[in-house]
């Protein structure tokens, strides 16, 4: 079972963005109710950089959502003051999304995680930016766990995010992320993990994105991913996360173990996952037409 953090309450969304700006509770509460019912385990509240008045916005958003759902909340903004406002306003469980290795983030946010007894996402992003391979991810991971422990945050409260990058950009980064995930338990025993799933399909035609997101989740599950930030409206994805579609999961995991299924014997649904897994494993080069060739 994968803990699902629904990404939908996001300032980038047209309806939600407008509702946040105009402080209209209804569209946000409707969505929060919908996603809660759909089976999400956490709600991510993404207010973007929120440079001006971020604290007030997050305070309002947390209270608004709290009125309709008991789910834990992931507070998602690059503005530390807004994170703190969210932590204060939230009567339930909070996850700080996210703390990277940039000194200003560490300095501002680690003490908050302690003070409010919140969990934190440890984003493997350093001062030099994106890690280049699995080893750099490992080094960053050790670093961030050490720094968080030192500040008083137990490893169990750290959710490591290896950073998913678009399949349409560089397959080697996708493979590096997976390779890192296969090592995480040894590098940081007890740490949790989380991946922003939709990043993997950024740049892919909109109506095809969920195929990649779902298959990628299955692949991460092979390495025991703890949690994923997901589209709360993608029923098939949630089914997979909750332990369903076992045959498809076994098919993909088998492929990762080197078992090549006879593609002519596959059902259309299996074929969809087979083709997508081949792309995500770097066996077939990605193109927008990957499902039809």
């Amino acid at each position: 079972m994968v803990v699902c953090v629904a990404e939908n309450i996001n300032i980038m969304s047209k309806t939600i963005g407008a509702a946040i700006k105009e402080r209209q509770a209804k569209p946000i509460q409707d969505m929060a109710r919908d996603i809660t019912r759909a089976g999400a385990d956490y709600l991510d509240l993404n207010i973007g950089p929120a440079r001006k008045g971020g604290d007030e916005t997050m305070d309002w958003l947390v209270k608004t959502v709290r009125e309709v759902t008991d789910l834990p909340l992931s507070l998602d903004t690059s503005n530390p003051a807004a994170i703190e406002a969210g932590l204060k306003a939230n009567s339930g469980v909070s996850l700080i999304n996210s703390i990277s290795l940039q000194p200003e983030r560490l300095e501002a946010l680690l003490p908050m995680a302690v003070k409010y007894n919140a969990d934190m996402i440890g984003l493997l992003w350093s001062q030099e930016g994106m890690p280049r391979d699995a080893n750099e991810r490992a080094a960053h991971c050790v670093d961030i766990v050490y720094k968080a422990n030192e500040a008083g945050i137990p490893t169990e409260k750290i959710w490591i995010d290896p950073i998913a990058t678009p399949i349409s950009m560089d397959i080697n980064q996708v493979l590096a992320g997976l390779e890192f995930m296969s090592m995480l338990l040894e590098i940081a025993p007890g740490a949790k993990s989380i991946v922003g799933l939709s990043n993997i399909s950024n740049g892919t035609p909109h109506d095809l994105r969920h195929y990649i997101n779902r298959c990628y989740l299955i692949m991460l599950m092979k390495y025991g991913i703890y949690s994923a930030i997901v589209d709360g409206y993608d029923e098939e994805l949630l089914t997979i996360a909750k332990g369903g579609m076992v045959e498809i999961v076994n098919l993909v995991h088998g492929m990762m173990d080197g078992n090549e299924p006879a593609s002519k014997d596959l059902s259309p649904k299996e074929l969809e996952y087979y083709k997508t897994a081949r792309v995500l494993m770097g066996k077939t080069l990605y193109s927008h037409s990957w499902l039809t060739v």
């Binding site: 349409s168 080069l285 990605y286 193109s287 927008h288 037409s289 060739v293």
Partner: peptide, 14 residues
């Protein structure tokens, strides 16, 4: 861009 190169060749083939 290798992915776009492949995609255009697929489209031309189609």
């Amino acid at each position: 861009d290798i992915n776009l190169a492949k995609q255009l060749n697929i489209l031309l083939g189609n």
